[in-house]
Computed example of a mutant assay.
Amino acid sequence: MSSTGLEGRSVIVTGAAAGIGRAAALRFAEAGSKVLVADLNKEGAEQTVQAIESAGGVACAVAGDLSDQRVVDEVVTTAVKAFGGLDVLVNNAGITDSMSALADTDDAEWERVVRINLTAPFLLTRAVLPHMLAGGHGAIVFTASEAGLRGSAAGAAYTASKHGIVGLVKNLAVMYRKQGIRTNAIAPGGTRTNILANSMADDPAKLASLANVLGGAPGQAGGEEAPHGPTVLRDYIRTNPGKGSSPEEQAAAIVFLASDAASNINGAILPVDDGWSAV
């Protein structure tokens, strides 16, 4: 992987305790990058660091809520002190919603999803930019979603947050291209991760009900009237023409966009979905 230009680069990957984030952190390390693993899950983040170090790589971890400015500051300060600068930021951390239609979305769900999916990457990007500007270069990669390209892949809160990410990517690309900073995003289709279970870990009954709706009879979940959102979205999700991807496939696209191989790609939203977005 000597042609990537990632050797010795300082990289922050959020949501790297598992799934796409962990796969991306491992892949950056394999390319010779020094990786800061950021995640709310301390144990999982430390396991990712251990995997990188066991393979001969360089990594460290910061655990905490990335929508908290103090945690954001700790992530950036730790990376700069440990690695001597900042070259790549991967804003991957995120949660899903319960696929609620707007009328069924309460304040708590809306605020939590938007705070983690949109506000947190805004805060971290804002904190990282001065260091990239000082170095005269940088690559920022977001994990968007099919839900950022269409209205039929998730509930109101998640869809709005991912459309917000798409807009943020395009604005960053325009604002900072003359300063040597590129900003792009992947838009994953169905990917084999545990994001849904993690997002609803505090409400297993809702998770079970949602799974039943998506896999069960129309309009019914456990003998009760199904929530409107999942009932509507079920058919769209079932007819998704793309095959599910692995976290490693998504990670490969992230690393590509951060690498010198993508040096003239800026402001792009790259679907990694086996053609779902083309339908």
Rank of each mutant, 00 (worst) to 15 (best):
A187P: 09
V75T: 12
R234D: 07
P121H: 03
Q250H: 10
T48F: 04
C60K: 08
G155C: 06
V169G: 04
L207F: 01
C60G: 11
N41E: 13
A262M: 12
L124S: 03
A197C: 01
A108Q: 09
S2D: 11
F142Y: 15
V166Y: 00
G189Q: 09
N212W: 00
H131E: 03
R27M: 13
T77Q: 13
M200N: 01
A127R: 08
A154E: 06
A268Y: 08
T125I: 00
A251C: 14
L129M: 04
N266P: 12
A61F: 09
I116Q: 03
V71S: 09
G85Y: 04
L257R: 13
M200T: 02
R9K: 15
V279S: 15
N184V: 09
V213Y: 06
G84Q: 05
G94T: 00
I186H: 09
R115C: 01
T193N: 05
D97V: 05
T159Y: 05
V71R: 11
L102Q: 12
A93F: 07
P218R: 02
L36R: 02
A205P: 02
A185S: 04
A25Y: 14
M1N: 15
A127V: 10
G215R: 00
S54R: 08
G180S: 06
D203A: 11
E225K: 00
R27G: 01
S2V: 14
V76W: 00
T14Q: 06
